[in-house]
Design a binder for these strands. Structure first.
Lengths: 119, 119
DNA sequence: AAATGAACAGGCTGTTCATTT
DNA sequence: AAATGAACAGCCTGTTCATTT
């Protein structure tokens, strides 16, 4: 059972949770909209996050006590209502972002080192 | 079943295979020695590749037709003999390295973008 | 159909066990 | 014990199915 030791690169889950926090801070989006935005953003890099992983990220942020769910009637079109999220604990959010930044930097260093060593 | 589409970061397997090729090019090392070298190299980045994953990388490179196994009597100390590897197909090796470089660059871009977008 | 969510399945990888020298 | 390898187990994540609006 991996205990978080000896780890390789950052996990997709953490990567997405980071973006979810970022979206919520900007008062944007519900689940699928976040996914579409990310797909568009990363399309040229060949990365297409799936909806289930986006939802899992959101759910986990709720379990972490960082976000809360809120139902919201849709303003204009399409269907009735969506689930939006709000920051409930800014401190926890800041801490999480800080931790993820460390992991992102570490991951970058691993990749950079390989590029330097081998090519 | 993931078909290599919509993928996130480069996999540890590919990362290690790249280093294995690099080691073999320098006529270095057998399995555990390679692992120790990598552990030392990445220790400060908190990455510690496990022996089974190193062996799997080596085996896969054999399946890929890039390396061949060769038993070699140990020169000085410790125990009797180890398994060393030789490059059998330089073209394939070059191609593989090129492919991995693409994936490394792509992965770096993903991480860099997240750092730019969120922080 | 859009949106959310859960169930299911498979791949990747760490831990453990087995074998040889 | 060092070295190699395979078996086993668990986590992560993509695919599929179910439900609601």
């Amino acid at each position: 059972m991996p205990r978080g030791e000896g780890k390789f690169l950052i996990k997709q889950r953490a990567f997405l949770k980071l973006y979810m926090i970022s979206f919520v801070e900007e008062h944007k989006v519900y689940g699928l909209q976040a996914m579409d935005e990310l797909k568009a953003k990363f399309k040229q890099l060949g990365y297409e996050p799936q909806h289930s992983e986006v939802y899992r990220s959101l759910h986990e942020l709720i379990d972490d006590g960082i976000l809360v769910r809120r139902k919201k009637a849709i303003e204009g079109m399409k269907y009735k209502e969506v689930v939006v999220y709000e920051l409930i604990n800014l401190e926890k959010a800041k801490l999480y972002k800080k931790q993820v930044k460390t992991d992102l930097d570490r991951s970058m260093s691993l990749l950079r080192k390989a590029l330097e060593d081998v090519y």
